[in-house]
Amino acid sequence: MSLLSAASSRAYVVRRPRGPIGRMLEDERWLGLALLAPTIILLGLFVAYPFVKGIELAVTNTTVGQPGHFVGLQNFVALWHDDIFRMAVWNTCLYTVVATTTKLALGLWLALLLNRSFRGKAFMRAFILLPFIIPTVLSTFAWKWMFDPTFSVINYVLLHLHLITVADRINWLGEPVLAMVSVIIVNVWRGVPFFAISLLAGLQTISPELHEAAAIDGARAWARFRHVTWPLLLPVTMVIMLFSVIQTFADFQLVYVLTGGGPANTTQLFATYAYQIGIGTGLLSQGAAISLAIFPILLLVVIVQLVYIRRVETV
């Protein structure tokens, strides 16, 4: 007699749980709650508590070591009149829009290339992830050296190619526009692999038969992309964009390491300014108010994108 037939010949015995907890978990409502508990605890500790604490701080005049008292919306009113804050709002929006759209364009291009068959495809796919794997602070320090006003390797190369002279070395991090361009370049460099790999995963779910059918009907490459690939890739793209916008909007480490928000606050973002005021200067309530000011903007962005995703999925 085979093992299989021996096993199947045994009578199936239902064991009733013995303890009170076991019996309680027999009820699906309690079981569901028990299974959700770890997530609820983690979210409560690391998301809800800091968020509520942030709101509490933002409506007081707490400074480091001094509890402070309720001041209502005074911190937000002060922010409204703060030039540096207004500059940080503009910088953050510009940084997010330019970096995210560039990452999408380059990521999509890369994903389409990686979706083709060529020798060393597996290696290239792994290699492309490198900027995403290296810790941000570490890679940003390398970029800081490349953009260094005195020792920039980029300037060194341009100098030796006789494209610039010593007198007009490019002041990557010392000139406002170039400093913003520099931080966007580093953000794009770091973020493109995420877009490329995620979009590649999306591309691989599209059946080749659809492309073949379109090709038989006479559709050329661009028409196939526009009418077959892009509509099917759109839901994935929107989700990736959602993640990227949130991450880029709240970016900190990259700008902190590369420019510290300078020169003269021209690359200051929400997070770096909140850090400078709250942690550096010890004005905790003002720092919290700056951090919290991100929330309504991000909420709006997230709602718009989620509504759009739902619409795309239901069409």
Binding site: D148, P149, T150, R169, N171, W172, G174, E175, G260, P263
Partner: peptide, 11 residues
């Protein structure tokens, strides 16, 4: 040196 706009204390 215009690079001073981006210097830290060790630059």
């Amino acid at each position: 040196d215009p690079g001073g706009l981006a210097w830290d204390d060790s630059s």
